[in-house]
């Protein structure tokens, strides 16, 4: 069973290629099949015509479907012609050859390396390996140029106290834009379209929210703002089922209860969507009272360390 005991009979010894004259194969009868010859010829002619047809369509301005059909006929004609040729017009004689052992022949020197001048100095080999490990470590350092240290980027967003809530075009949002049960994606003034600042402003109506008492004041007159970045894998939480007050992430169906502080009620998300503290001003616009008090978006290993 083991390879080391495999017998290597003399007759199975491999010879270097080309060191002997190889006898030619016995003469073969080339199959006669006029019908197959006509089919192969017709296939090649079809390919030729379709190829020039494709050129013509291209020169006339091109048309994707016609191009595809002509290309199919051209490629298919060549392919079918060659296949029919190989099946009907080649002798296709089944041949058997001996399978040779893969392992090299042993010689006087011993194993494959067979260089005691090198292999005997094991200490030096280990030191050389260590030297290359050092070189490898040094060369790995430029990898760290590929991106900034994570730092506090993951813990903060562009939201600051006093920043007005604007839409994706940078226009200031007014409470009249959001009817009862409606919602709008808002951003901090100066960062419209921000990936980690994207926030959903939802008008759930006064008196329905069941968030912690200290967070009730963050939702003036039933306008509540939650981060739009899913806490599972970071997709925008883009679906809102107003009848159930549920936010749903279309990527992996994490579901969040808007009335109860956006706690997850389904799907793979674990953390609630962070709530943004906001204030409704007398002119009907909104300002933030600060950044989110916890990181937005997907979790990472030290997310609860406070950065």
């Amino acid at each position: 069973m083991n390879d080391r005991t495999t017998e290597r009979p003399e007759r199975m010894r491999r010879s270097a290629p080309g060191d002997r004259q190889e006898p030619d194969p016995p003469p073969l009868a080339i199959p006669e099949n006029p019908m197959a010859e006509r089919i192969v010829g017709a296939a090649f002619v079809a390919a030729l015509l379709a190829g020039f047809g494709l050129l013509g369509v291209y020169l006339l301005g091109g048309q994707t479907q016609v191009e595809a059909i002509l290309l199919t006929i051209c490629l298919g004609g060549i392919g079918a012609g060659i296949i029919v040729w190989s099946q009907a017009l080649l002798p296709n004689r089944i041949v058997s050859e001996t399978r040779h052992p893969l392992r090299s022949e042993p010689d006087e020197e011993g194993g494959v390396l067979a260089a005691p001048a090198i292999t005997r100095r094991t200490m030096l080999i280990r030191l050389m390996a260590a030297a290359f490990a050092g070189l490898g470590a040094a060369l790995a350092i430029p990898v760290f140029s590929l991106g900034p240290a994570p730092g506090r980027d993951l813990f903060v967003t562009p939201w600051r106290s006093g920043l007005r809530l604007v839409d994706d075009q940078g226009a200031v949002v007014h409470r009249d834009q959001i009817p009862m049960g409606g919602l709008l994606t808002v951003f901090p003034d100066g960062s419209p379209g921000s990936a980690d600042g994207q926030t959903l402003l939802i008008n759930v109506g006064a008196g329905l929210l069941q968030v912690a008492p200290d967070r009730l004041s963050w939702a003036p007159e039933g306008f509540v703002a939650y981060s739009k970045v899913c806490t599972h894998a970071g997709c925008p939480v883009g679906l809102y089922r107003a009848s159930l007050h549920s936010l749903i992430c279309p990527c992996h169906q994490s579901t969040f209860d808007v009335l109860r502080g956006a706690v997850p009620t389904g799907g793979p998300a674990v953390r609630p969507l962070p709530q943004l503290p906001i204030k409704l001003q007398s002119d009907g616009t909104f300002v933030a009272l600060g950044d989110f008090t916890e990181p937005v978006g997907p979790s990472f290993w030290n997310i609860h360390s406070g950065g």
């Binding site: 007759r11 002997r20 190889e22 016995p26 089944i94 041949v95 058997s96 050859e97 001996t98």
Partner: peptide, 13 residues
């Protein structure tokens, strides 16, 4: 099987 030809170690038949 339908073998009629055997290829030899040196590449002949």
């Amino acid at each position: 099987g339908g073998v009629a030809i055997r290829r030899t170690a040196t590449g002949g038949f």
